[in-house]
Design a protein around this nucleic acid. Sequence first.
DNA 1: CGGGCGGGTTGATATACGTCATATGGAAAG
DNA 2: CTTTCCATATGACGTATATCAACCCGCCCG
Lengths: 268, 268
Amino acid sequence: MPTDDIRWIDDRGRDNDYNPPELNPRGIIMEAKCPHSATTVNCNDCRMSALCLPMALQADEIDRLNRIVERGRPLQRNEYIYHAGEPFKSIYAVRSGAVKGFTVNDEGVEQVTGFYLPGEIFGMDGIGHPNHINSAVALETAAICEIPFSRLEELSTQIPSLQRHFFRLMSREITNDQQLITMLSKNSAEERIATLLTSISARNARRKLSGSRFRLPMSRADIGNYMGLTVETVSRVFSRFQKQDILSVDKKEIEILDLDRLRSMANT
Amino acid sequence: MPTDDIRWIDDRGRDNDYNPPELNPRGIIMEAKCPHSATTVNCNDCRMSALCLPMALQADEIDRLNRIVERGRPLQRNEYIYHAGEPFKSIYAVRSGAVKGFTVNDEGVEQVTGFYLPGEIFGMDGIGHPNHINSAVALETAAICEIPFSRLEELSTQIPSLQRHFFRLMSREITNDQQLITMLSKNSAEERIATLLTSISARNARRKLSGSRFRLPMSRADIGNYMGLTVETVSRVFSRFQKQDILSVDKKEIEILDLDRLRSMANT
DNA sequence: CGGGCGGGTTGATATACGTCATATGGAAAG
DNA sequence: CTTTCCATATGACGTATATCAACCCGCCCG
């Protein structure tokens, strides 16, 4: 099975990475110290554009989109992008860093609903409701684009390809969730972890980063929460994978030693 | 907690039921023999309109929507509305009967992704893809409205409230799925079944049917599949609920004897 | 420097649910 | 009417994962 078939998460990631330090038209090095710097970026020279909303647009249309996008200061680890219960106003795109989306139920128990990496869109859960249903926090220092939803809606009525693309994004969120549902109701702990790792690997590869060596932005507890497992089980699976020479793990640093085997486990 | 908070499924159902036998303008009794009869129905006099797509529209707009809706002959039990892999062309609304949505993975294992009752929309999973990802079959004799998606998209650019409503529908599908995810990863077998039953109860009540006595349209196997349980476990939970005087079960006929207790179990 | 603390690992034990087997009853088929 | 078959039910048993507990390690903070 080709990598592309690991759809439930991979569809979010497609290509490229955040805008790395590079020369601007005047030859001055931008963002050399802070890769999360925001103010100098716009949709035209953001290298995420190929997988973010602009991918559906022509140059002049990107310009119009660009004008409604808001880019704040970089967020620190554990800073919220939005809280459940807040009025829903915008959707968001990750430019750099990583974000965790989650709900908290009546008893205060958290449920992680997704991890978002550079180039991915989040916050769509709020669209059907006056207030946000989920919360979102930065898992590490992150640069986020905010796209006011009412402006985007307006723009969508004027640019059919944007409307279509947006429908597609939402429907993919649905199929992603459904593949997670399948996993939770049918797959073992090992299969779930293998699926998560191959997914992150593929999303990294598409951003031209290593698909075999990377740093997990989330804790074991977050992984377990997301996959319906306890921390202990996650930890044990990681240990077992190491004993089997599938992985090499050093805290959050992961090296995938046998991607084929990992894929065949994930592949249920 | 009010019934309304059982969001993960209830949001689909809101009010009313299929069009029952009634007088047409000329005083002739319509559809007396077949409640699933299609040809005489249009969006204006369909009593599902209050929770279906027309709910967002003015009279003249409903007319325009009505003109793009296709209503075929009633479907029999086990007939497919669409198969996974078929080109995606339309979304669908249930006018009467019940529908099961499901995926089949590479090994041929089925995963139920949802049950759809009268007034509810399904088939949105296909939007982001050229072909349908899921399949959908009638669980019992059913009348279905087909809404060609390209026409709906077109109409949406002309009627902003329709676009907005459609965004809402999709986002609710997302939050529904996420609440199912939470249930699968955190709740016991009893809690899951209790949640399903209270959900169906609430959806029936909103259609002015009994919320305490109803017929389950799906098999125990489908329930188990949907909730991540085996048939045996589903059966045992039903038996246990009967011993505790929470339910009275006769094959698919359900009577809820203690809705409060059921709610408090569901309510995790 | 020492203590506390959060995150991670590992082991021993408990348990909810799955698996396998068998039974029943109604519906469809012949 | 008999046979077959499918859905449902119920019991015995096994097991994957949760739970509980102890421990380690790096980090922050006094």
